[in-house]
Lab assay of single mutants.
Amino acid sequence: MAAAAAAGAGPEMVRGQVFDVGPRYTNLSYIGEGAYGMVCSAYDNVNKVRVAIKKISPFEHQTYCQRTLREIKILLRFRHENIIGINDIIRAPTIEQMKDVYIVQDLMETDLYKLLKTQHLSNDHICYFLYQILRGLKYIHSANVLHRDLKPSNLLLNTTCDLKICDFGLARVADPDHDHTGFLTEYVATRWYRAPEIMLNSKGYTKSIDIWSVGCILAEMLSNRPIFPGKHYLDQLNHILGILGSPSQEDLNCIINLKARNYLLSLPHKNKVPWNRLFPNADSKALDLLDKMLTFNPHKRIEVEQALAHPYLEQYYDPSDEPIAEAPFKFDMELDDLPKEKLKELIFEETARFQPGYRS
């Protein structure tokens, strides 16, 4: 834990890192770190609560700039109880001085990944967590956004079992017609939660990839272990087919990539493993919904509104309290091709509203 900075004593240090967030945020305490930044909790002297502050230093890398800009653009436009918001952003007053960006968010005690390492969940908890994931996802999908990296560590939890989806750095506007060349190379989302079509096709992607990830998360809540822990690309596919069985001819016809289709045709026939054999203690309604989410063919996979209306979630289902976005989200430009200098300018502009004396 960093010592509390005395008023006016300059930035606090946390594990050798400068955290320049005073005077409003003090009493910093280390939480963890990701690929390009550290997260601390801090005391907000204005709202009198502890908050989470993520320090991001992305400006050396085009990919990190892209992810940072995506996350900020999306989260500043989203407003939903099951999606983490941005409360404040701290950065230098000029673009030349801006080396880091500090993002202030609600402090959540833990995440689903940490929880599943230590606790076996009751059916009631599984049901409530799944409902909140789908409630947040309904809003995301209504904005025409794909999260693309749903996994237990991106689901934040607090002691009252509130759940918030975080990390929109890989999110995209849904565009089933656009052929994202190089899709697989830039697709760094965790393999275990990846839909089979991501490994088999490169053309376009749809909201059904997020539903697949939610199915993987439900299976993990039922058993405290990942359902498809593939060691590499082909191993991942083999794990999936080992449980779902061989795809039907109709399902194979959806695979545009001939090499991928021929690979699947070359494999020995596998039978589907019954879900109640894998999860003998699970609620039968939970397994019915799991089956509809972990469907090989993305066109037959359940959609988020149908999933919310499934009998497993009937005690929570309330369409009048499951809000959607006001308007579909649009990125003005494809960020993939922009140089990091341009992305830095866009991050600077996007964060201006939090600067003292800002006038829109």
Rank of each mutant, 00 (worst) to 15 (best):
H178A: 03
H147I: 03
K203I: 14
S41T: 14
A4Q: 05
K54N: 11
V173K: 03
A309F: 05
V51D: 15
L163H: 02
N281H: 07
E12S: 05
Y358R: 11
D175E: 13
H310K: 02
E345Q: 07
K330Q: 08
N144M: 10
G16C: 12
K340S: 08
A42N: 01
A286L: 08
L338G: 08
C254I: 11
T160F: 08
L28H: 01
G85V: 14
L146Q: 14
A9H: 10
N271D: 00
N27C: 13
G34Y: 00
V188L: 09
R148L: 14
R191K: 05
L76M: 12
V101I: 11
M38N: 14
S284L: 12
S360F: 11
F279R: 03
S284A: 09
L156M: 13
K203T: 10
E341L: 07
C40N: 10
A9L: 05
I209K: 08
F59G: 15
R172D: 01
I126M: 05
R225N: 07
K54P: 01
A307D: 11
D291C: 06
N262Q: 11
I95D: 04
S213H: 07
I324R: 05
N82Q: 06
L338D: 05
R79S: 14
E71T: 09
R77Y: 01
L287F: 07
R301P: 04
W192H: 03
A9M: 02
I86M: 05
K344G: 09
F228R: 01
G34E: 13
A352G: 03
D20E: 15
H141F: 04
Q236A: 06
M108R: 04
K292Y: 06
P176I: 08
R277G: 12
S29I: 14
S284R: 03
D167P: 03
A9P: 04
L294T: 09
G245D: 12
S360V: 12
Y64F: 15
S284V: 06
T110S: 15
I90W: 03
D124S: 08
V214I: 08
E186A: 07
M38K: 15
S29P: 03
S57V: 13
V173G: 11
I103Q: 09
E341C: 05
Y187H: 09
A307K: 00
G182D: 00
Q315K: 13
P11S: 14
M108G: 05
D111G: 00
P274W: 01
E220R: 03
N276H: 11
D337C: 07
P274V: 11
Y358I: 13
S320I: 07
Q236L: 14
L218K: 06
H80A: 05
N144Q: 06
H299Y: 14
P176N: 07
Y139E: 08
D44Q: 10
Y113M: 06
G245M: 04
K231D: 06
N201C: 05
G230C: 14
V188H: 02
R24V: 02
K138V: 07
H178Q: 12
Y64N: 15
T159M: 08
T94A: 11
A195P: 10
S153L: 08
R70K: 00
V188C: 09
G34T: 01
I89F: 13
C254H: 08
Y128D: 02
T160A: 02
A325D: 06
K55S: 13
R359A: 08
E334S: 04
P226M: 01
G32T: 04
D288N: 13
S266Y: 01
G204N: 07
A260D: 12
E305T: 02
S213E: 09
F348P: 04
F279I: 15
P328R: 04
H310F: 00
D251A: 13
E109R: 03
D210S: 09
H125A: 10
D318C: 08
K270E: 00
A352V: 12
K285W: 07
T160Q: 07
V214S: 07
D100Q: 12
I95H: 03
F296A: 03
E33W: 01
H147N: 13
P196S: 09
I227D: 01
K342F: 01
M293K: 14
S320D: 05
D88L: 03
S213F: 10
L234V: 10
I53E: 08
T206A: 12
K73S: 08
D175M: 08
L156Y: 06
P11W: 12
D44Y: 15
T159F: 05
C166S: 15
E322F: 00
K344M: 15
I209P: 04
L130H: 00
A189E: 12
Q17P: 12
K114A: 05
Y113V: 03
F279M: 08
L267E: 05
